[in-house]
Amino acid sequence: MTIAPDRTPTRRRVLPAGDNGSLWEARPSCGTFEFRGVRLRLMVDDPAEVLFPTDCGLSLLSALNGDGCPALEGVNALDLGAGSGIYSVALLAAGAGRVTALDINPASAAQTSMNVMANGLDVTRLTCVTSSLERYTPVERFDLVITNPPHLPYDPSYARRDGLETALVARRGGLAVYDSVLERVDTLLAPGGALLMAHSSLADIPRTVTELTARGYETETLEIFEMDIPLLAYAEHKETMLTLLKEQRAAGRAEFDGTRFTVHALMFRRPGNVTRR
């Protein structure tokens, strides 16, 4: 199926610094949100194993709530880096035909399945896969791929080897998972399908846009969110992380002001058409 584009002007939302600007309405292990008219609830049993979604990830769903955003009914979707399953839950609630939740973290599968069932959704439409993107071989290509890649730079001083690091930190200056998405998207996405991405300004947005545009993808910014860099979890190593980010900025691979950055809700449409089976 072809994902129709949104033609409305790009919106920009500035989230106030600190907790008051959060898109969440509850504590950081359980929260409720509304997606396409359905009230949904998300829980994380152990935030050290599976990170409770941050505003960075939730911003993409907020952008997809607007008028003119792509239809999701009946799509075969890949939730790439599923984590707690927030995108899987939202897509199934919006009528997706099938969702594959892929995550390298083994704890993600159980958490995603639990959240799907807790919201009264059909878990038989969900397939959970524990694998890195590099080693994942899809049975078929997807109508839609949705992802919020980790975007903070790696440093041995704050390496944790837990769900927090899996969700937030990546090697190659925070670009490793973005690199993998760019390398694999043609094998994952069916002609006419869409890649929906919460893209951090800390991870070289122009490079992603330039590369996919050169490959024929149509690019659209649905909404831009300004928020705090998620340094609270790394308070002890804040200066180290900011130093690494400043190096990325000096190299032209990051944009931020003080401790504020932006997340762009992006839609990349692959050329061509595919008939839904």
Rank of each mutant, 00 (worst) to 15 (best):
V181L: 15
G57I: 04
G21L: 10
Y158K: 08
V38L: 08
C128I: 10
R215A: 13
A198L: 02
A71T: 09
S131V: 05
T130A: 07
A77K: 11
V263Q: 09
I86S: 04
E247V: 01
D204P: 00
E211R: 15
T100F: 12
A63M: 12
G83R: 10
S22M: 06
S84P: 00
E49V: 10
E140I: 06
P106M: 14
P28M: 07
I104L: 12
T54V: 04
I146R: 05
N273R: 14
Y87L: 12
L121N: 00
A250I: 02
G74W: 07
L212P: 01
L189A: 00
E25G: 13
N148R: 11
T243L: 12
R270T: 02
T8L: 14
R36D: 06
S84R: 03
V209S: 02
S180A: 15
L61R: 08
I205R: 11
R171L: 10
L23V: 07
L242I: 06
D55E: 05
A26T: 06
R269E: 07
R12E: 11
L168V: 01
R184Q: 10
L40A: 04
T275R: 15
A90Y: 05
R184F: 02
T240I: 14
V139C: 13
V75W: 10
M267W: 02
V44D: 00
V209I: 13
E218H: 13
E73D: 06
T187H: 09
L168F: 04
F33H: 14
R11P: 00
M241A: 07
G216S: 14
A159R: 15
D228C: 03
Y136F: 15
P138S: 12
L92M: 05
D45G: 11
A159V: 05
L266C: 05
D257P: 03
V44Y: 03
M43N: 13
L195A: 00
G192W: 05
L92H: 03
A118M: 12
G74K: 13
Q111C: 14
V181E: 06
E134A: 15
L91Q: 01
P28C: 04
Y178M: 11
S132W: 01
F142P: 03
I205F: 05
R269D: 01
R39Y: 01
F256R: 06
G95D: 08
L212D: 00
R184P: 00
R171E: 15
L121R: 07
E25K: 14
S29G: 09
Q248M: 14
G252C: 03
